[in-house]
């Protein structure tokens, strides 16, 4: 199948995303039930109908948003099946595999009841329902990893490697970091080729890695983490920061000097915030800017070459952002937060 078909479908789907005006209309709805009524007139009505059977109000909306995301990813990977574009979807969708796997590991470690863990899984990635329920049946962390190895799931590799370290220290973040690291390494290796579209996707992943490193650095600087402990928390393969530069960044030691340094990189937007708000800025405010930057860049892929598959990645990011925005609206409506505060958390693409 050629890209014309995919491109046309994605564009059809993109045109159905909510624009800024309809989002503002949703913000102005007085309460949750009128928000639901308004959403029923959008592409979410099918998911809302399904979700509102089991849950009502806010829970129903959130469930519907998740269902919609899962459905969208399924739909796109269906018509990309057997093409190289499928790999790019995989990069996006395996985020939820990582989420699911982490949730299961965390839950199994403190013996959370299986039903509760299941409620927190999002089967949007590669893991199908049967693998997830097999994993849920395992009694502890060790057997979860063993099962992954038996099923030849790629994530078994980093987990098995990190497991001895985990048993020695008992810190779960050792396993989690191994997983996250593996995710980005795998993502980069999936787009290791020389073609233009692979280059573009590689650039987005590199940007994401940079932004994650900046976030981690900000958090660690604020809590005065020892640079030696901090280095393993940083990811290699960033677009701007390589291993050597990261070490240099670590030695800066404070949020102020980090942000000052960033002025010479593409991430100088952080210093604007700092100069207007001062030193009291919360890390989450910085992260909002970082997220916004990443989303803007990823969605830009959609507007790029119309005949390449990068359009799909751009669309998925746009969709993800829309779902995030809707969730913010629903949550804030529920808690009676005024619209202005709501918009501060939202990202418009």
């Amino acid at each position: 199948m050629d890209s014309g078909y995919v491109n046309a479908r994605i564009r059809g789907m993109y045109s159905r995303l909510l624009d800024k005006k309809s989002l503002s209309n949703l913000i102005l709805k007085p309460d949750i039930s009128s928000l639901i009524t308004a959403l029923e007139e959008t592409s979410y009505h099918e998911d809302l109908e399904r979700a509102l059977v089991g849950k009502s109000g806010l829970g129903g909306i959130e469930e519907a948003l998740r269902l919609n995301l899962i459905r969208t990813i399924e739909k796109i990977s269906e018509f990309l099946q057997g093409e190289k574009g499928e790999r790019y979807i995989l990069i996006f969708s395996s985020r939820w595999d990582i989420h699911n796997l982490k949730t299961i590991l965390r839950g199994k470690r403190i013996k959370v009841p299986t039903m509760q863990i299941r409620e927190n899984l999002v089967p949007a990635g590669e893991f199908d329902v049967s693998l997830l329920s097999e994993l849920l049946k395992q009694p502890d962390v060790k057997s979860v990893i063993d099962l992954l190895a038996t099923w030849e799931v790629p994530y078994a590799l980093p987990l098995t490697q990190a497991f001895p370290d985990y048993t020695a220290h008992g810190d779960l973040f050792i396993l989690e970091n191994a997983l996250d690291r593996f995710y980005y390494e795998r993502a980069l290796s999936l787009v290791g080729g020389k073609s233009v579209e692979e280059g573009k996707i590689r650039e987005i992943i590199g940007t994401e890695i940079d932004l994650i490193n900046i976030k981690s650095l900000l958090m660690m600087f604020r809590d005065h983490v020892d640079p030696e402990d901090a280095l393993p928390m940083l990811l290699d393969g960033g677009k701007v920061f390589n291993q050597k530069k990261l070490k240099m960044l670590l030695n800066l030691g404070s949020i102020a000097s980090l942000i000052e340094y960033l002025e010479e990189t593409p991430y100088r937007f952080l210093s604007d915030l700092r100069s207007s708000e001062g030193d009291t800025v919360k890390i989450s405010t910085y992260q909002h800017l970082l997220d916004e930057y990443l989303i803007r860049h990823a969605v830009r892929l959609y507007r790029g070459d119309p005949l390449s598959v990068t359009v799909v990645i751009g669309y998925l990011w746009a969709k993800y952002t829309e779902i995030m925005n809707l969730r913010i609206i629903a949550r804030c409506k529920n808690a009676l937060i005024p619209p202005e505060d709501m918009e501060a958390e939202m990202v418009y693409v």
Partner: peptide, 14 residues
């Protein structure tokens, strides 16, 4: 062939 593929996609979505 090109238009047909794109058209099929479009009709599927809209």
């Amino acid at each position: 062939s090109k238009i047909g593929a794109a058209g099929a996609g479009t009709v599927a979505e809209r």
